[in-house]
Amino acid sequence: MADDYYQLLGVPRSADSHEIQRAYRTLARKYHPDVNKQPGAEDTFKKISEAYHVLNDPESRAQYDRYGPEFRRYAEAEREYASQPSGGPRPGGRTRARPGPSGFSWSSAQAGAGPGGTSVDWDDLFGDVFGSRRGMDSEAELELTVEEAYRGGPRTVILTGPDGERESFDIQIPPGALDGQRIRVSGGGQPGRQDGGAGDLVITLRVKPDRRLRLDGKNIEMDLLISPWEAALGASVSTRAPGGTITVRVPPGSSSGRRLRLKGQGMPQPGGKPGDLFAKVKIMVPPHPSPRERELFEQLQRESRFDPRSSS
């Protein structure tokens, strides 16, 4: 019994092209012969590649959904019929002559029965098989740090195709790139048919947070590390931000978690309003206080009546 392409990729029959591409990328990384040396991995890789190429193309997917694993048999039957010298219609069929790929005329006939005894409309099934057609778009994701997205600049994206062949693309990241933003590379997708031209490569940017920086739309949130006395007395603190060194004014009595807004210092937006930078106060204490520091902290403990638990 032939493998079900949807089951091979682990997607429902209602899956869209994005789900199919994600499933294929995951399985291809797992079973690619260069990575997986287990017996049967190469055969599995070939099967999932075949399933992907059929289901990722709307035309072949529609044929597969209609006729199942035997959909290619109908294509072969049409080619055999087109090559007959008589070129006449089958009994009971209707014909429509059109030029073939080599200049000759072939006839598309509605004849025969498909699954369940239904009539096969050969013209609908093979109407565009010989014509030019633009290639499908391909999709990829590129991961950036917040600082890389802030600066932008040139990047090289290297993709590995189903056959293991690598291809590189030089792209330009715009300054202030946001998570989910898409960059289109013209002609970087799948090859077209005849003169249809290649599709595009669509790259989705993914901006990952780190221990200091987080992205919220076009706003940036960063941790501002300060000492207990800076938090209590107030201070002007210099710190590193994606755009360079900045000075943040910490008001007296700032507790951990307080957010200080620096307007317009978030992600740049060429031609638009930039985001804001939010510095989140995080109070740090000496991990190994000196004897004098410990003495002063003990003195503060004796003299202060501040109770953070009762004031909350």
Rank of each mutant, 00 (worst) to 15 (best):
S105D: 15
L9M: 06
V185E: 01
H18N: 06
G40L: 04
F71N: 06
G117N: 03
D3F: 11
D137N: 11
L8G: 11
T26F: 02
R212V: 05
Y64D: 13
S14L: 04
Q84F: 04
G188K: 00
S186I: 08
A15C: 04
R22F: 05
R13T: 13
E167S: 05
E298T: 10
Y74C: 08
V248F: 04
W122E: 04
E59A: 15
E139M: 03
G40P: 14
E76P: 06
K30S: 00
R61P: 12
R305G: 14
R72P: 05
D4M: 12
A82K: 10
G257D: 01
P89A: 15
R206H: 12
G112H: 05
D34L: 07
H18Y: 08
R184H: 00
R249K: 05
Q7K: 15
P286R: 15
K263D: 07
R61W: 08
Q299I: 03
P289C: 06
F169L: 01
T160V: 10
P308G: 12
S83E: 11
D57L: 07
I220R: 01
S227H: 01
A177M: 00
P274N: 12
Q21A: 14
Y74Q: 13
P39R: 14
E80C: 07
R259A: 05
R73S: 13
K47V: 03
R305V: 04
P291L: 10
L233P: 08
Y67I: 12
V185T: 02
P85K: 14
P274F: 06
D210N: 12
S14I: 04
A75L: 09
D307W: 15
D65T: 12
T95G: 09
